[in-house]
Amino acid sequence: MVACYPSTPWIIPPPKRFDAPLRLFCFPPAGAGALLFRPWLTYSSPEIELFVIQLPGREHRLKEPCFTELAPLIKALTAAMIPSLEPGKFAFFGHSMGALIAFELTRELRRQGLVLPEYLFVCGRRAPQIPIDNPLYTQNESILIEALRQYGGTPEAVLQNSDLMELFLPIFRSDLTLNETYQYQSELPLEVPIAIFGAMNDPVATPEQFEQWKQQTSGAFELKLFEGGHMFFKDDPKLLLKPIFERLNCRL
């Protein structure tokens, strides 16, 4: 395809340009930024390129306010992403809060009559129609820090650094607010295949809650479970990239 790389703070393209026939857009979980996916970028190939979504309020967008409601975020993100979706085929991957964003972004593209992703890969989040019954966003800082400890992925030295937590916790709380106050609205299932990846010991959601994603597609559906907790893939991106590339008929 004749491609142009995005010129927007919302999207970080791969370090090398391949003009691959398929793009995989990656959406981060609560509190995280594009750096979470930096190890993934080394797997860009002539067949598939990884583009990372950078939300406001973190890393190079630190001075921008975080969103605390999903609807305005989806509106802004859709407008920013449309030019990057036009050149050819694409797929979405989202973890935890990122799974919800990827899902609602796909529904918004459908509402606007725009091209939809080839595949929707979601990870580490209960199906969107299941309300979150144990919200954290109103809890005090010590409870939020303990939640991060249970999720895994944040070094203990960081959790015990008061200066870093003073910077990070407001971002995390804003993202939790967005994720936990989300109000699901019923629509027709997507005509997009969905694969849900989850961990057996995830404190955020159960295998039964992962399974309910099947209600959101009229196409193919698959649930793949892994050992570990919420951030089971952080130290080994291939755990997820291998099944994703396989389902997109690309080589890793």
Rank of each mutant, 00 (worst) to 15 (best):
I53D: 01
I53M: 05
I53T: 05
Q54W: 09
Q54G: 09
L55C: 02
L55P: 11
L55A: 07
P56T: 05
P56Y: 00
P56K: 04
G57T: 00
R58K: 10
R58Y: 01
R58F: 00
E59R: 03
E59A: 00
H60A: 13
H60N: 14
H60D: 15
H60P: 13
L62K: 03
K63H: 13
K63A: 15
E64K: 06
P65R: 12
F67N: 01
F67I: 08
T68P: 08
E69H: 15
L70R: 11
L70F: 08
A71R: 14
A71V: 15
A71E: 15
P72F: 04
P72V: 09
P72D: 09
P72C: 06
L73P: 02
L73K: 01
L73N: 05
I74M: 04
I74K: 08
K75S: 15
A76K: 07
L77W: 08
T78K: 15
T78I: 07
A79I: 13
A79E: 15
A79D: 15
A80E: 14
A80N: 12
A80R: 09
M81G: 15
M81T: 13
I82P: 13
I82W: 12
I82Q: 14
I82G: 11
P83S: 04
P83V: 02
P83R: 09
L85M: 14
E86V: 13
P87Y: 09
P87F: 09
G88W: 02
G88T: 08
G88P: 05
K89E: 15
F90T: 06
A91G: 03
F92V: 01
F92P: 01
G94C: 11
G94I: 10
G94P: 01
H95E: 06
H95Q: 07
H95P: 00
S96V: 10
S96R: 11
M97P: 11
M97E: 14
G98F: 05
G98T: 04
A99H: 10
A99N: 08
L100G: 06
L100Q: 08
I101T: 02
I101E: 01
A102G: 08
A102I: 04
F103K: 09
F103Q: 03
E104T: 05
L105A: 01
L105M: 12
L105D: 00
T106M: 07
T106I: 02
R107T: 07
R107A: 08
R107W: 07
R107Y: 09
E108D: 13
E108F: 08
E108H: 12
E108W: 03
L109A: 06
L109Q: 05
L109S: 07
R110E: 13
R110Y: 00
R111E: 10
R111P: 03
Q112W: 01
Q112F: 02
G113K: 02
G113Q: 04
G113M: 01
L114G: 06
L114D: 06
V115I: 14
V115E: 14
V115K: 15
L116Y: 00
L116P: 05
L116I: 00
L116W: 06
